[in-house]
Design a protein around this nucleic acid. Sequence first.
DNA 1: CGCGAAGTTGACAAGCCTCAACCCCTGTGG
DNA 2: CCACAGGGGTTGAGGCTTGTCAACTTCGCG
Lengths: 244, 244
Amino acid sequence: MTRPPLTTRFEDPAVSALMAGMGQLSETDHEAMRHLKVVHRFIGRQRSLIHEGDPIRQVRIICKGWAIRSRRLDQTRRQILDVALPGDIVGLHLDGKSTSICDVEALTPCEVGEIDADALERVAHQNRGVASSLHQNLTCQLARANDQVLRLGRMTAYERVCSFLMDIYDRQRLEGALRGHVDFPITQAIVADLLGLSVVHVNRQVMRLRREGLVSLQRRQLVIHDEQRMTSIASGRAHMVAAE
Amino acid sequence: MTRPPLTTRFEDPAVSALMAGMGQLSETDHEAMRHLKVVHRFIGRQRSLIHEGDPIRQVRIICKGWAIRSRRLDQTRRQILDVALPGDIVGLHLDGKSTSICDVEALTPCEVGEIDADALERVAHQNRGVASSLHQNLTCQLARANDQVLRLGRMTAYERVCSFLMDIYDRQRLEGALRGHVDFPITQAIVADLLGLSVVHVNRQVMRLRREGLVSLQRRQLVIHDEQRMTSIASGRAHMVAAE
DNA sequence: CGCGAAGTTGACAAGCCTCAACCCCTGTGG
DNA sequence: CCACAGGGGTTGAGGCTTGTCAACTTCGCG
């Protein structure tokens, strides 16, 4: 269910999250960002944030929880484009007429900050740091999309799973996760739709990774036992290595 | 080989191409763009424009010819991310430190316009239209990347080939190709690396499309005989249709 | 004419999918 | 407290899609 929205103006967690991913912002930049109005929404698990074809007038920032962006080919075939973690922006995937080109759905209960796109654009136009940060965010999403293309196009199922697990792991480490284990609120069915595989085959790859002692994956938590080996497999470098 | 670069300032084809993809630019926007210095380079077929890891200080616009952006997993596995046609920008795929995350290579002899990235950023900052056009260009590249992910993740080989041919076809029609046939300077090996398939299998799909009378593909030219059917296959809608 | 690149075809192998059965865990309601 | 249902995970068997290898043809070009 959706709790009533909430509005804040100062040191908003959404704004902080947004700016965290940004490079060097001047004090003026910060000041300008603080004056943006942010509407907070709370979205239940598996609820839709955005539908393909929706007109988009706000930029949305995930403050808490995880979400996925996806597209459908038909009833049975869905492709998940990427996973959005706290601090990530959703709603930049638009066509020329500001219409969303993908669905966005909450993987876990989410708190989302909404900022009016025009207002943000005005701020960006007057504050160079903000503009270049947004630009950098887009560039980063492009880089992610390229990673995904490489995975789907040329990696084996085993490599794809490794690569994806390391991606989720690394992103959480960057955000300051110091423990050996990170959150993983993702079912194997989701992984399958992300990696262009069947659920059954994903399960086989996960089983193999466990058997080889590389990862633990239970109760929504992921532990990487051998970072180096995982990274090497994920980058396609581990080929004729004795894999048993 | 690389001919000596050439510098122009007014009504540069690169600038025109760049602005063509942009929405509504004011006269001031145009004026500002015209004062940008553009260095033109001529690149031979199969020559590299950018290597992964190169520091990028210029935005590059393809004025003539076709190029591809690609990444390698290892010696034997390459994934082509997309094809750049005249008017397309390359060199926006960067990591945080302005380093290229992919290779760019000329598919045919190319003329490329180079604009200093800082200078362009200054112009963009002062001219809202330019800024939003660049933003829109990035958004468009994101949308393309998503299309590619959908293709690789969930389409069959047959659908991928259809989808790709229609993409190349539609893009040239948009640019004003009125004839029934469009350029197609792309070998099947390139299509294979684009679609995550083997050359042999690409060939089988092309043969099938020919047998079914949907396309002609010869002497570097592509003809689509049944646009509607092709579009329907490319979007995954043609499933249980009697396809032979 | 001859060479190399690109395209074509068949046979066979491998990777991945589908189906189907089963297990485990958790929450829910009687 | 137990029964039950449902979601998620696991496993095996068999089939289809795609890859690999290898041979051959065609095309483009000097």
